[in-house]
Simulated scan of single mutants.
Amino acid sequence: MYINGIPVGKDNVPFTEFNSNIVRFKVQKPFTIAMKLVDWEENSGLGTESNRGNAFHAGDGGMVAVFKDASNKILTTTNANWKAQTFYTAPIKDLSCTSENGTTRLSSNCTTDTSDDGNSYYALHWKIPTDWQNEQFDDTTWPNATEFTNEEIGVDNKRSYTNFTDIFDDSTNNAQFIWSTNVVLDNEVLVRYTVK
Rank of each mutant, 00 (worst) to 15 (best):
Y122Q: 08
E41R: 15
D39S: 09
A123V: 03
S96W: 05
K158N: 15
I128K: 00
N182Y: 03
D11S: 10
T111Q: 00
V27H: 14
G61L: 08
H57R: 08
D69E: 10
V23W: 04
N51Y: 15
F67Y: 11
T194G: 05
M1C: 11
Y88T: 12
Q133W: 05
S20A: 15
N187K: 15
L75I: 10
T149S: 09
V195E: 09
A65Y: 09
D139R: 01
K196T: 10
D166P: 02
N81T: 06
T181C: 10
N163D: 03
W179S: 02
N12A: 07
N187Q: 15
S107C: 05
L106G: 04
N72R: 01
N157V: 11
I22D: 14
T172M: 13
I33T: 10
N21W: 10
N79I: 05
D139E: 11
D131S: 14
W179F: 00
P91A: 01
N43Y: 00
M1S: 12
W40F: 15
W82P: 01
Y193D: 04
N163P: 00
D138P: 00
D138Q: 04
F148Y: 02
Q136V: 13
D11W: 15
S96P: 06
A70L: 13
I3E: 03
S160Q: 11
S115H: 06
T165M: 03
G154W: 01
E100P: 06
V13S: 12
D11K: 10
F67V: 15
M35R: 00
Y88S: 12
N134P: 00
V8F: 07
D131Y: 03
K93C: 11
E188R: 09
D186F: 04
W82L: 03
A65W: 07
G118L: 08
T130K: 11
A58T: 10
I22L: 14
N187G: 12
T172I: 07
T141G: 05
Y193E: 03
T104P: 14
N119V: 12
